[in-house]
Design a binder for these strands. Structure first.
Length: 284
DNA sequence: ATGCAGTCCTGTAAGC
DNA sequence: TGCTTACAGGACTGCA
């Protein structure tokens, strides 16, 4: 389940392989994706040079000469990688972009087809990745911004962290890991969160994501980048996927619940349920 | 406007 | 052993 660190790893791997290269065309194979490929997009890609590769939240943005941008979301099982053209076509390959010279091609595979690929013009991209939809990058999120988002909602902390318009790029794994790092209970209501707690949460998100990027992300079931390499941050998990196992800090059994429609793990001792409901107004 | 539940998709694993 | 069922989850839609 690629989240920000995994997507960042893919982008860092692809950047030297793709920047400056020219796309020769596009080949559709296999079943349609969530966002169907529009044949009109092809003219935006053909003979265009790849000028930049960057990440925004969990989105991969491939800038092209001209006015177009290729935008890719890996969903849960998506993979984007460069291989020699002669390499056998792997199952669940949906799109192939042959590259000019070098006998290589860029391929998109996605077993569960939760991912998406699209081509956007500059104004379309601005709209697509606009602040309405996609909030600040975690590394640019201020405590004041996060505190404001928390204060205005009756949702719990887990649901808020998964909301891409609050902070872009955090998914289920790093939401749980960040909440553990901040010693905050995932059930705590946003509006019951103090400024000091928001500050701690912001710092924890940055710390967890930074470390995960250093480990090239987490490989649980299906995340690989480059030539089938795997990340190693799964070995650093404190709570995610550790239901019933002892907390690495206090040995208490990690608890597993369902929150915001997602499996959620936390340590009941390190992340106490201080006040899940409403923070008491200071009585004076 | 806000928040929640349902939907998509398929491989894996647990249960009978 | 073989079948059925539950589960994983990011983004989106629709409903209350």
């Amino acid at each position: 389940m690629p989240e920000l660190p995994e997507v960042e790893t893919v982008v860092r791997t692809l950047r030297p392989q793709l920047c400056g290269r020219t796309i020769a065309g596009v080949r559709l194979v296999g079943k349609a994706l969530r966002r169907p490929w529009d044949p009109a997009w092809e003219r935006h890609l053909c003979r265009r040079q790849i000028t930049e590769l960057r990440r925004r939240g969990k989105w991969i943005i491939i800038g092209l000469s001209g006015d177009a941008t290729l935008v890719v979301h890996l969903g849960m099982t998506g993979r984007l990688y460069v291989v020699p053209r002669r390499a056998a076509l792997e199952p669940h390959t949906h799109l192939v972009f042959p590259l000019v010279r070098g006998e290589q091609e860029l391929r998109f595979r996605d077993v569960r087809r939760f991912g998406s690929v699209g081509v956007f013009t500059q104004p379309e991209l601005m709209h697509f990745l606009g602040e309405q939809r996609l909030g600040p990058e975690p590394f640019e999120l201020s405590t004041a911004q996060l505190f404001k988002s928390l204060q205005g909602t009756s949702r719990n902390l887990k649901a808020v962290l998964l909301d891409q318009s609050v902070v872009a790029g955090v998914g289920n794994i790093y939401a749980d890991e960040s909440l553990f790092e901040a010693r905050l209970n995932p059930r705590q209501l946003g509006r019951a969160t103090s400024r000091e707690e928001a500050c701690r949460l912001r710092r924890s998100i940055v710390k967890v994501l930074t470390r995960a990027i250093e480990h090239n992300g987490s490989t649980i079931i299906s995340f690989y980048y480059g030539d089938g390499e795997s990340g190693s941050y799964q070995n650093e998990f404190r709570v995610y996927g550790r239901k019933g196992e002892p907390c690495r800090r206090c040995k208490t059994a990690i608890q597993g619940i369902r929150l915001a429609g997602r499996a959620t793990c936390f340590c009941p001792r390190c992340q106490p349920t201080c006040d899940v409901r409403e923070r008491q107004a200071p009585s004076g």
